[in-house]
Design a binder for these strands. Structure first.
Lengths: 148, 148
DNA sequence: GTGCCTACTTCCCCATGGGAAGTTTCTCTC
DNA sequence: GAGAGAAACTTCCCATGGGGAAGTAGGCAC
């Protein structure tokens, strides 16, 4: 990484982000997006936040949301973390922040195209978690009974 | 969500893990897997850990790895965190831990089928990070120049 | 004027994670 | 036979990060 000829550098520039290397920017990016609040915010803005009508195919349409809406949906997030996470996502160009100077000012957040592409991943994560919950729970019990 | 008939409740029982609810087990599961070390370990064991020959199609085959191998691959992970994360993944049935009583004992970790299914997700995350790195970097610069 | 609204920011405190050194059990070397 | 060394942890200490709660701005309603 430190000693490298220009030709190699050029060849690497396109492909050679290796998230396993601690210093690699893609590793830092992975660190940032492998965060529970990031995943949840992406899911929320991505649109798979319908109140859970069972059986109804969830309408998965990206949707702009206000700060308070997100705050309400992501039960348990502290305001500090929410603001902080939203800022970093805006910083990375994953979402846009729009201030509307209404009575009390309203702020709305919306995924960019880039954010939308990441949303496909986080959506998969969330669905995985919900789909395999039972299995994991069963595994935990098996594990605990084996070791107790 | 609060007012619900028994019929609906029954219908929900199967499907209705909602990761947005703070108390929901699937939320806790999502919290656990939305972790940088979890993602990296899954990627490592999933097999997309080739030393980065640019251009060469990465051989993506799940692979058992020893503790020290993982430790070396995931530059920057502390032993404490690595052990802790591996334990929790084993606990959830995402990987198996096998002790071989050789000279100094060797321990190898391997993904279970469940872990493998999650690996598809984390692999996507990692690839996304590496693929969109440049774009994110550009966005950061734009953002910084706009606000400075 | 008092109070309330949204979208934050700030302060304090505790839990979590990093760094490094210690532990165990064996075998190999001097 | 004393000591080194190796793998996989475990333990201890301390800094950072995240939660909880309270404070801020500023415009409108009462």
């Amino acid at each position: 990484m430190t000693t490298m000829k220009a030709a190699q550098k050029r060849a690497q520039a396109k492909v050679e982000y290796n998230a396993f290397l601690a210093g690699c920017p893609s590793r830092q990016l992975l660190d940032r997006i492998s965060d529970k609040w990031v995943v949840l915010i992406l899911c929320a803005l991505g649109g798979d936040n319908s109140p859970g009508q069972p059986g109804a195919a969830q309408a998965v349409a990206p949707k702009a949301m206000r700060y308070s809406e997100i705050s309400r949906l992501l039960a348990g997030v502290s305001q500090k973390m929410l603001t902080q996470t939203l800022r970093s996502l805006e910083h990375d160009g994953l979402l846009t922040r729009t201030v509307t100077p209404t009575v009390p000012v309203t702020v709305s957040y919306e995924l960019t195209e880039l954010g939308l592409s990441l949303h496909h991943m986080t959506r998969g994560l969330r669905n995985w978690a919900q789909a395999h919950m039972a299995e994991v729970l069963a595994n935990r019990e098996t594990y605990d009974s084996r070791t107790s």
